[in-house]
Every structure is written in structure tokens, then in C-alpha cells.
């Protein structure tokens, strides 16, 4: 068992973990941050994506100890300071980019990473970037639309009839 310390959503935190403890497990069970979801056991689904030092990481694919000293942001850290939804979160609500909500934390975290890298992504770029996040509910239409809207693009013509 090892003590591990990091900054999560702006607060210094620490905990005692086994060598095999995944970052996802540390966040959920150690810190009670259950917004990070576990949807698979093969690092495919992307429901557990968080930011580690600004990069989108599937938190089930690294050990908690690998994030020692890092700055971690989870879905719980994405709202505005006053508690209102952040721009990407708001776009997901405005464009119905979520249904059951289970993949949503990972989708928002991946989308935020995309927009940090590429502030005005094309539809194809959004779809390609979100390949590692599986959603079973939405058929992705409104997720892609929400991400493009969050980037400031006009999506009113998307699939309009």
C-alpha cells in the first residue's frame, strides 16, 4: 500500500492505494467522485475519461500511482465557479446530447480535450476524436452537434429539413 497525492478538481487530495489500484477506482472509491463511470473492462468505452495534466486519459488505463503529483480534472470539476453548467455541458443539454447519462462524463471530458486542441473542429474531426467514447443511446447525432455548437459553430442547419 502506498500513499498517493494529487490535485483533483483544484483540491489537493491523497489516499492509500495498492499498486494495482486504477486511477478510476481511486477517483470513485477513494474520493467518492462517482461521476467517472466504468462501462467496460478493456479500455474501449471511454466513460471514465478524465484530464490528467490537461490531457484526456481513460482513467481505467492508468494506475492511481501514475497520477501522483498530477493535476486531475473530472466531470465534477467542469461546471462554472458559480455551479452553472460549463459551455460544453450547456451545449450537451441544449442539443440533447445525452440520454441515459452514463457515457456523458467521458463524452464531455473528451470533447473538452478536443476543443482545447482544435477550437473549431469539423464534423468529421469531432466524429474521429470521439471514436474512443461509446454511446448506446443517442446515435451520436446530438453529441456531435453539441460539440460543434460548443465550439461556437452554427449548427442550425445540421440535418434540418
Amino acid at each position: 500500500m502506498t500513499k498517493v497525492s494529487m490535485t483533483v478538481n483544484g483540491k489537493p487530495v491523497s489516499g492509500v492505494v495498492e499498486g494495482r489500484t486504477l486511477l478510476s477506482a481511486f477517483l470513485r472509491e477513494g474520493l467518492g467522485l462517482t461521476g467517472t463511470h466504468i462501462g467496460c473492462d478493456t479500455s474501449q468505452c471511454g466513460a471514465c475519461v478524465v484530464h490528467v495534466d490537461g490531457r484526456a486519459v481513460k482513467s481505467c488505463s492508468i494506475f492511481a500511482q501514475e497520477a501522483a503529483g498530477a493535476t486531475v480534472t473530472t466531470i465534477e470539476g467542469m461546471a462554472n465557479a458559480d455551479g452553472s453548467l460549463g459551455a460544453i455541458q450547456q451545449a450537451f443539454q441544449d442539443h440533447h446530447g445525452l440520454q441515459c447519462g452514463f457515457c456523458t462524463p467521458g463524452m464531455v471530458m473528451s470533447s473538452a480535450a478536443l476543443l482545447a486542441e482544435n477550437p473549431k473542429p469539423s464534423e468529421a474531426e469531432v466524429r474521429h476524436y470521439l471514436e474512443g467514447n461509446i454511446c448506446r443511446c443517442t446515435g451520436y447525432h446530438n453529441i456531435v452537434k453539441a460539440v460543434m455548437a460548443a465550439s461556437g459553430q452554427d449548427v442550425s442547419a445540421v440535418a434540418a429539413e
Binding site: 467522485l33 467517472t36 466531470i75 465534477e76 467542469m78 461546471a79 453548467l85 455541458q89 445525452l98 447519462g101
Partner: peptide, 8 residues
């Protein structure tokens, strides 16, 4: 959506 989007 608000609770789902904020991890709550």
C-alpha cells in the same frame, strides 16, 4: 441532464 452533466 443537469445531474448527469455534472457527475451527480
Amino acid at each position: 441532464d443537469v445531474r448527469f452533466l455534472t457527475g451527480k
